[in-house]
Structure formats: structure tokens, C-alpha cells
């Protein structure tokens, strides 16, 4: 490393620290301050540390709403991501392996899914007709519908790297279509599946707009909605609001620290193809 590269690195680090890291430090300080101190908004070192008391208070607020929200968000995320993996891989597989006129139709759907903003009120109308409005499973299916295009593209491009000889060897071994897919292809999709799970989990966990429209009601609250609801409720309790932000930021941080490489792979692979 040249001295120029070292000096540039130090300058870049200082700039990155001010621009990207300080806002998180600010959030953390606010979260541990006392109510009065937090109300001052100042970016100062906390004079008293109220980490635990703030944490307990925010968790207990509104009859443990945050725990309910975590529960709901987890169910939505896990359910939607599981379906996205299976459905996305199955469509990507047929799309890549079987050239036909239908593919144009599927591609048109994928393009629409990536580009077209969902028509929210008509969607509510459909959900109501199906009895899925304000339900967790309705929300899961919505996330599946909105995430499919990305999943299909990601899987399609990965499946293109799996030699067709493997399918044919399985055919000769007597495998039925479902066995070729579930016993031969799906296990080989593991790397891209890990990536997809991470990227989609974070997107769905962080989603605010869709639960806002399709999942109103106290008992259906999701993590992002608690934040939004608390914003008005905690007008005078900024320490608790920021503690809430902290709690919402921690899951993606942990996931990011552990799976940095796979997330980066997914973001770029999917994006460059898209």
C-alpha cells in the first residue's frame, strides 16, 4: 500500500465517520438518555445512562405492543420468504429450462413486477373480496406477489449456470419432474437461496408502506408501524422513540455482520441482471 492510498483511506474514513456513522451514534445516545435530556435533541454524550430502563419501558409500552409487532413481522417475513424461495425457484427453473412462447408472457410479468407501482386501493378491494384484508396471511401473499419478480430473475440467472446434463442424468435415473427439481436442482440453489433469503427478509422486515395500507389495526401491528405510531405517541419521550429505532436497527445489523458477503452478492447479482 502506497502512502497515498493510506492517506486517502484515513481521509475517507474520517468523512465516512462524520457522514455515515455519527447518525447511528446519535441514535444510540438518544436511546440511552433520560427523557428530559433527550428532549433537548443535542448531540451530546449522555449524562446519565438509562439503557435498561428505557429498553424495558419501550418494550412494555402500549401493553407490550413491540413484542406483538416483532411476532407479526417475523411471521410475515418467514412466511413470505419461504414462499418466495419455492415459487421463485420453480418459475425461474421452468423459465430458464423450457424455451417457449409462454416465456415472453412470464418476462412481461416480471418486468411489470419490477416497474409498476402496486395499485393500492384496487388491491384492498381484491383483498376484501377474498377476506384477506387486515390479515397476516393476506400480508404474506402481498409480499410474495411484490417480491416474485426479483426472485424469479435471481433464480433464473443462477439456474443458467447449472448444466442441463444433471437434469438429464436424473431423467435417465427415473426421476419425475418434481424429483428432478426438489432432489437435484433445489439443493444446488443453496448459495443463491441464502442470498435471496437475506435480501428479501431485510426488505420485508423493513417494509412500511404495504403494512400501512393492507394491515391496519392494533393487533396486526408490524415493527415499522410501531415506529411510526410511537412517533406521534412519544412526542415528549424521544429517548423511547430512539430506543425503538435502535431495536429495529439491530436485527439487520446482526444479519449484515454475519452475512455481509451473501447480501452483497445478492444485491449486485440481482441488480445487474434486472
Amino acid at each position: 500500500m502506497t502512502s497515498r492510498q493510506r492517506n486517502t483511506g484515513i481521509i475517507a474514513f474520517l468523512a465516512a465517520f462524520i457522514i455515515f456513522i455519527l447518525p447511528f451514534v446519535f441514535t444510540f445516545f438518544m436511546a440511552v438518555k433520560s427523557r428530559q435530556e433527550a428532549a433537548l435533541f443535542l448531540f451530546t454524550w449522555p449524562s446519565e445512562w438509562h439503557f435498561w430502563s428505557n429498553l424495558v419501558e419501550v418494550v412494555q409500552a402500549r401493553n407490550y405492543m413491540l413484542l406483538l409487532a416483532y411476532f407479526n413481522s417475523t411471521i410475515i417475513t418467514v412466511g413470505a420468504v419461504a414462499l418466495l424461495v419455492i415459487f421463485g425457484a420453480m418459475v425461474g427453473y421452468v423459465l430458464q429450462r423450457r424455451p417457449s412462447g409462454w416465456n415472453k408472457l412470464i418476462y412481461a410479468g416480471v418486468l411489470m413486477g419490477l416497474m409498476v407501482p402496486p395499485a393500492v386501493v384496487p388491491t384492498i378491494w381484491v383483498l376484501q373480496g377474498l377476506g384477506l384484508f387486515k390479515t397476516i396471511h393476506g400480508m404474506i401473499l402481498i409480499q410474495v406477489a411484490y417480491g416474485l419478480a426479483f426472485s424469479v430473475l435471481l433464480y433464473r440467472s443462477f439456474i443458467a449456470t447449472i448444466p442441463r446434463d444433471l437434469d438429464e442424468a436424473a431423467i435417465i435415473d427415473g426421476a419425475k419432474p418434481w424429483a428432478i427439481f426438489f432432489k437435484v436442482i433445489l439443493p444446488l440453489l443453496k448459495p443463491v437461496t441464502v442470498t435471496l433469503i437475506l435480501v428479501q427478509s431485510i426488505a420485508i422486515f423493513n417494509d412500511f408502506t404495504n403494512p400501512l395500507y393492507y394491515l391496519p389495526g392494533r393487533e396486526n401491528v408490524t415493527v415499522q408501524l410501531t415506529l411510526f405510531n410511537f412517533q406521534s405517541q412519544f412526542q415528549s419521550q424521544f429517548n423511547l422513540l430512539f430506543m425503538n429505532i435502535l431495536l429495529v436497527t439491530i436485527p439487520p445489523l446482526i444479519v449484515f455482520v454475519i452475512f455481509n458477503r451473501q447480501i452483497v452478492a445478492g444485491m449486485t447479482a440481482g441488480a445487474v441482471k434486472g
Partner: peptide, 25 residues
Amino acid sequence: PYPYWFVLPAAVVFTVLFLVPTIAS
């Protein structure tokens, strides 16, 4: 060996919850 019913579950969800509302809009 690549049957179209593989596409079906995804197509149903996508059509009902995305395409139909978009067209209805």
C-alpha cells in the same frame, strides 16, 4: 420434464394480487 404447473402457484398469487388490481385500477 419442466411442467408448466411449476409456474402455477406463483402465477395465481401474482395475477390475483398484482395484475388484477393493476388492470382494475
